[in-house]
Design a protein around this nucleic acid. Structure first.
Lengths: 188, 188
DNA sequence: CTTAAATGAGATAAAATAGTCTCAATTGAG
DNA sequence: CTCAATTGAGACTATTTTATCTCATTTAAG
């Protein structure tokens, strides 16, 4: 009868997550492959997303939502310094590497104003956090915050990939990444 | 008359460089777009590379050759420590970021044994260099060399992109990347 | 159970892309 | 200059992918 909107939403999200999983590692996958991987018929896929472009936009938006949500959850501004917050955020984002793919290397999304605007907002909030850590004297001030952010984004993605490909233990990943970003590789 | 093989080779390489330029930022570009961007007709493109797959493989191989060559040139084993060599290599690789794209995120190439073997060889030589720098006490020994390598590869690509997109001065790039990798972001 | 909505499978149509072919124009070696 | 090779433009075909449509089956609310 009446479609239960919450159920339908959940199904839609599941579908998007399955699509993310596949497209993050094989961006050229066919819509038929996406439907297969999600375990649904391609007709159904089209009922949820009229075109490939629609799907890509939804994927970008979900990625953004998920990341933004993780950042909010990990922030807990009342607890700890800006650097502590950043550390918690990094730990929270490593498992979301497949979503990050859409924020870093999906040039199709660059043409969607909705997406680019929302993306800018998320990046901006991260930038402010980095700048606060610089003011606190916890992060170097002789390195541009913008650079740190960009570098961090790619490092997050690379780390997720290491875990995904089986070269790095999931539980080691965040710690290794944080020490790499903060302390670098040089021996002291 | 007789085709001058060196001229023809040079033209082929120019073609590949143009293709690299486009496909590194827009991996889904059409063959017609590739031909356009290279300033040639698509018929000619097909005369050099029978299929898209052929082109991709040639791009991967050129990327590998270029990178391997840059590494050899920058090495100069007689001059300086392993860490010095690594630093020179990083400086040399930043401008080759578009080539790196094919070594990092072109899943099509994973199915070409020729490519994966050659890639493995290059990565292996870099790994040995990192391990030497660890033995020398110049790089931390409590961080896996394999991880450093993987992280470095992505950092190189991210840096090239920053320059390419105009967010980072070409002349600042290598220095910033080296200090990031070696010293990290934490204030001392 | 009943029934309307949602789904899957696959046929089909439409569109995009890859790849082939022809021919006139250009190039470059001799 | 001459001539054979190479090229570019675009028509054309083949193939792949996207998108639509139909209909029998499944699902779940009431």
């Amino acid at each position: 009868m009446q479609p239960d909107s919450s159920t339908k939403d959940a199904r839609r999200t599941e579908l998007l997550n399955a699509a993310t999983e596949l497209l993050a590692t094989k961006p050229t996958a066919t819509l038929a492959e996406v439907a297969d991987h999600a375990g649904i018929g391609k007709a159904t896929l089209h009922r949820y997303f009229a075109s490939r472009d629609d799907l890509m936009l939804a994927l970008g938006m979900l990625a953004l939502d998920t990341v933004a949500h993780a950042i909010r959850d990990a922030s807990q501004p009342e607890r700890g310094s800006a650097l502590d917050m950043l550390t918690r955020i990094i730990e929270a984002l490593v498992p979301l590497g497949d979503k990050l793919h859409f924020l870093l290397s999906e040039s199709v999304l660059d043409t969607h104003p909705d997406f680019t605007a929302a993306d800018r907002a998320v990046q901006q909030s991260m930038l402010h956090l980095i700048q606060r850590a610089q003011s606190d004297g916890d992060l170097r001030s002789d390195v541009p915050a913008q650079w740190m952010l960009h570098h961090m984004n790619y490092a997050l993605y690379a780390t997720w990939q290491s875990v995904h490909d089986g070269y790095l233990a999931r539980k080691d990943a965040a710690r290794l990444l944080v020490t790499t970003l903060l302390d670098g590789f040089a021996a002291r």
